[in-house]
């Protein structure tokens, strides 16, 4: 079967294993001291692409829209085994919502050209909308499937997919070129090897700005983003407990509290 050129979308996200703070003004994560990592599901996306490449030959290209510091994240993606990487980085892209992000990524895919498959994670750990994958596909006019848990080559020009839904699973066939978003169950991502790390330094990593892509300035960044985040709140999982001795006053206090909390 013919080799596959696979584009993997990789989002650099804050490492949520370390404590993360939010900026209430900008409604974003304070990036200050937080390490940036590959969005966990994008490691699954990359692993799926690498496995397909190992089976059928071809090439894996990584694509990311992020500030310049994300270069190190893409270098890591190259160390995992991707062959080439594109970082779409421009101050004009700042503040993009999923619509604008997907538009820029789609323009990036067009720039890379000659692909058979685009793989994204099902969702990111920060924005977590699960919209970007399908939106990129719509921008490109590609057939797409989300929450894929298994992928097989069905024929020269199609894949056989298993998708997870709330009701159960769907077995589907999709024509190439296509876009799929993958779930955690699809595979166990490999660990970084030293041979890969050593090879990564010499692999091509391109940083492209808006002038390198055909983008309409009205459709990117805050300007191109109809979404406004109204509020952002931290959810505390700390358990509250209060001890009250059993007088009638205490019981009525308890009832009052329960009413305040909306429990009763």
């Amino acid at each position: 079967m013919k080799p596959l050129h696979i584009i993997v979308c990789v989002k650099p996200v804050p490492d949520f294993r370390s404590p993360v703070e939010f900026d209430q003004k900008t409604k974003t994560v304070k990036r200050g001291n937080v390490a940036t990592v590959i969005n966990p599901l994008d490691k699954n996306a990359l692993e799926a692409a690498l496995q397909l490449k190992e089976s059928f030959g071809g090439k894996v290209t990584a694509l990311s829209m992020a500030p310049p510091f994300a270069e190190s994240v893409l270098r890591e993606v190259l160390a995992f085994g991707a062959d080439e990487a594109f970082l779409l980085s421009d101050p004009a892209f700042a503040g993009s919502d999923t619509l604008a992000t997907a538009y820029v990524l789609a323009q990036g895919v067009k720039k890379i050209r000659d692909f058979d498959l685009v793989i994204t994670g099902a969702a990111s750990t920060d924005g977590n909308t699960a919209q970007v994958g399908p939106q990129v596909a719509e921008h490109l006019g590609l057939p797409h499937a989300s929450f894929v848990t298994q992928v097989k080559r069905h024929s020269e020009h199609s894949l056989e997919l298993t998708l997870k839904t709330e009701e159960g699973t769907i077995l589907a066939e999709i024509d190439l070129p296509a876009l799929i978003t993958v779930s955690r169950e699809i595979n166990e991502p490999r660990t970084l090897g030293l041979f890969g790390i050593a090879a990564a330094a010499a692999k091509p990593l391109h940083i492209l700005g808006s002038s390198d892509l055909e983008v309409d300035p009205e459709r990117v960044g805050e300007k191109g983003s109809p979404t406004r985040i109204a509020d952002i709140r931290e959810v505390s999982f700390a358990r509250k407990s209060e001890l009250h001795e059993g007088t009638p006053e205490a019981i009525s206090l308890l009832v009052k509290k329960f009413r305040e909390w909306g429990v009763i």
Binding site: S72, R75, E76, A79, T191, L192, G193, L194, I197, A198, A200, A201
Partner: peptide, 19 residues
């Protein structure tokens, strides 16, 4: 170096996941 940083990250991941 960038390579040493990646190395540290990769080995830490290996140690935590495999060892």
């Amino acid at each position: 170096t960038q390579e040493q940083e990646l190395l540290q990250k990769g080995v830490r991941e290996f140690a935590e996941k495999v060892v």
